[in-house]
Design a binder for these strands. Structure first.
Lengths: 109, 109
DNA sequence: GACAAATATAACTGTTTCGGCATATCCTTA
DNA sequence: TAAGGATATGCCGAAACAGTTATATTTGTC
């Protein structure tokens, strides 16, 4: 069942989504938000980097539509806006496990 | 159902997979290979870039385990080594469509 | 062995991106 | 309105990356 080819614009959009998810710190932030919203301060404490850096990456995630932002008084809470990212991560993890397993198999027998 | 957190090494591996897939030309190459193997020359003709550029990106895809390389005589054929990438792309496309649709809804009543 | 075709590599350039630091902005409270 | 806490932004230097050109390597053919 051959799929229709994606247009150049569509490819750019997909590539951009992957680019957003290609940074370890951003993946870490998404993972930390998996079980519910967290403030910038909380996220900063849980990552090992500066608060400005966390804010910067959160903005990238938000611009990409992966995360949504809610301000309550003085603090800002971020939460997952698109849970399909976890499906994607699960598929990637499965693929990587498979690959590592078959590579490990080289040394067996 | 809270997932176990990924280790830093696992996150780096996943991020690297996304980075490999975050380049439009590489996505284009993967798409061109979807229905079967193609030679470097064929791929170069189908993309609008130089042959060295295609070879470079194919190498990146191969190193990442997304593509496999077979040499037959003078020409080299690449093919998809991990079809889970298409699952991933489909999920991303669905998410992006959804997002565009809801954005378009802003202008509707 | 010499030549031609197919593919890979090397060197270079311009661009992008990350992280850190300093600082600005916004909100709350006194 | 002044001060302090929370978050965002601007600027900088270093590193990574894409694309081009030239060239090397490999393979098949004469």
């Amino acid at each position: 069942m051959a799929e229709q080819p994606l247009s150049d614009e569509a490819i750019d959009l997909v590539a951009n989504r992957f680019k957003i998810m290609s940074e370890p710190l951003r993946l870490r932030l998404l993972q930390l938000l998996r079980n519910g919203e967290k403030s910038v301060g909380e996220l900063t404490d849980l990552c090992r980097t500066s608060q400005p850096n966390v804010s910067k990456h959160l903005k990238i995630l938000q611009t990409g539509g992966l995360v949504s932002r809610v301000q309550k008084g003085n603090t800002v809470y971020y939460s997952i806006a698109d849970r399909s990212i976890f499906t994607i991560c699960d598929v990637v993890c499965g693929s990587l496990e498979e690959r590592l397993r078959s590579q490990a198999g080289i040394f067996a027998i």
